[in-house]
Design a protein around this nucleic acid. Structure first.
Lengths: 327, 327
DNA sequence: CTGAAAGCGCTTACAG
DNA sequence: CTGAAAGCGCTTACAG
């Protein structure tokens, strides 16, 4: 590997001069500038990032913590984060935490030793204080926790309310909500939206909790549908859960949307590929990712930030799992 | 940040001794061992990875190059690679190359400056010589290129042949193959399998090329189905392409599997969620990822490797897009 | 405008 | 068994 020392020798200057040239910092005469440029070219020199990191105590790397890249909500988010990180010269390292607090801690600690510049958290098993204690620039993505950490998310409460009202408007009279885990604020907000909609409209309802995965949602759906045969509408807290609910509904030979209407949340590509295609609340996933990345990079580069909390609008996409008009 | 120097001071020894203790290399007396251990605990010291990297010229990081994490084939692969990397103490950085040679080069160069320890290539826009010229441990995953680079992939030729034969056995008489890009060996192998099956059985056929994305496959499907109405079977080179084909078939109001039978390739979760559920060749995706990661880590750690080329078996999953018996 | 020197936090021969 | 020193490849005050 060719080092700055080799370049200096070749150009007949000191390493300090080469460094100044590289960083465009401090004076370098036109002549030596040319000599150094030539040497760099001749030797095909590339500065060593690790050495730089050691000095600057920063790595130009960003950590993205997610529960599981295998959950179809996250690839697009990860892609968005990568695209903007890349554009600003940062490399991203993705960590699957599986909702495991210990794993999350281990990851963050390992990243800190690598002088990670900041973290985007699309997971939260720890407390706000824990996160803050790492003394790293932070952004919460699709999550939130207290008001000390900048965050980017959708308008979960209102969107869930709208989704529920759609079900009601289209004639559902006993609606089930398959909600996500209680400690996740996002799931909580959607639950509140559901609850308010259903109570304001005095509609019978039931709420069950499920993990954000397909199988769990399928099982739960089969169970509630068996216990409460009058259920004629389901609002799931994610599209994957809705896909699971769809499987559950079919396994009981019920028809969608005639017997049971179904609405999901997220707007991942899968929602359009299912048959019947899923009515869902589409989050601006890519945009959320880019916003979070920009917000983090601004903090890292100590640039001024206008807003710390972003709440983005969603789009209710009516497809085939809801009726086009009231029955 | 607390450094090895702080620990040394606290324990009243030299940094060399602390380092020896840390790396369990060289002699350290029981007594000083205890003192150092206490100091480390008291100060909550964590060795700095960057400084270590600089000395060792290695980073404990592995690069995973894929076309696009948003393509549902890759998350599971990435997950597998991460799981074993993690277990062996390596961090993985995922790079989306979008099939762009320049982007791929830029990534590899950026990673080299970070002392990346090795690369898993699930993409190949460059030549084998280009890759080798980076002088990095390498594994090709789901791809192959020449015979100089270790690789892990499925039995693409035989699997494609079987898939095509299924179509034939179930009565298709004019079969279209939607193949992937020509420069991708995997797509080529599947194409050869298709071609041999169809020729050996003297079945009419047609081959069209498409990108590995849903929209492209949909468009292509609509076109061939319009130009060749006698098509009654389609073998797609991936599940996503098959999903696109399914959309195309439906948009022409043809029925599956009655008018047209359809078989995909990959066995991603999506294939089971589609309705009708997709008959497909399931690759052992997770296993491929873990194998590739182990193969790379062995090279990095200069351990002996038994085999350089792995060809894994697939499973033909018959579902609803093919008939259960000959029409 | 340029170079010598110290330092980022670690590791490893080499003396003793 | 332990420590002083040099070095990994860079950067930045500080002299001159």
């Amino acid at each position: 590997m060719v080092t700055i020392r080799d370049v200096a020798k070749y150009a007949n200057v000191s390493v300090a001069t080469v460094s100044r040239y590289l960083n465009k910092k401090g004076y370098v005469s036109k002549e030596t500038e040319k000599a150094v440029a030539e040497a760099i070219k001749a030797l095909n020199y590339k500065p060593n990032s690790v050495a730089r990191s050691l000095y600057h105590k920063q790595s130009n790397m960003i950590g993205l913590l997610i529960p599981d890249i295998t959950n179809p909500f996250f690839p697009e988010l990860a892609r968005a984060v990568e695209d903007v990180s890349q554009a600003y010269g940062y490399t991203i390292v993705i960590c699957n935490t599986d909702g495991d607090a210990e794993k999350e801690k281990r990851y963050i600690e390992a990243l800190k030793r690598k002088y990670i510049d900041g973290l985007i958290l699309a997971t939260n098993e720890l407390t706000a204080e824990d996160y803050i204690s790492y003394q790293l620039p932070l952004v919460m993505l699709d999550r939130s926790i207290g008001d000390k950490i900048p965050s980017v998310r959708s308008n979960n409460y209102e969107s869930a309310k709208q989704a529920t009202e759609l079900l009601i408007n289209r004639g559902s009279q006993f609606i089930a909500h398959i909600r996500g885990p209680c400690h996740i604020q996002t799931a909580e907000d959607r639950y509140r939206g559901f609850k308010d909609a259903v109570e304001e409209n005095k509609v019978a309802h039931i709420v069950v909790e499920s993990g954000f995965d397909l199988e769990a949602a399928k099982t739960v759906t089969e169970q509630i549908l068996t216990d409460y045969p009058m259920i004629d509408g389901i609002f799931a807290s994610s599209d994957v859960m809705a896909a699971g609910a769809m499987k559950g509904i079919k396994s009981l030979s019920l028809s969608i949307p005639n017997d049971v209407q179904l609405v999901g949340f997220d707007g991942i590509p899968l929602s359009g590929m299912l048959i019947p295609s899923l009515t869902t609340v589409a989050q601006p996933i890519y945009k959320m990712g880019t916003l979070a990345a920009r917000l983090l990079i601004k903090q890292i580069e100590k640039k001024p930030i206008k807003d710390y909390y972003y709440t983005l609008d969603t789009t209710l996409i009516e497809r085939e799992t809801t009726r086009s008009e009231k029955k």
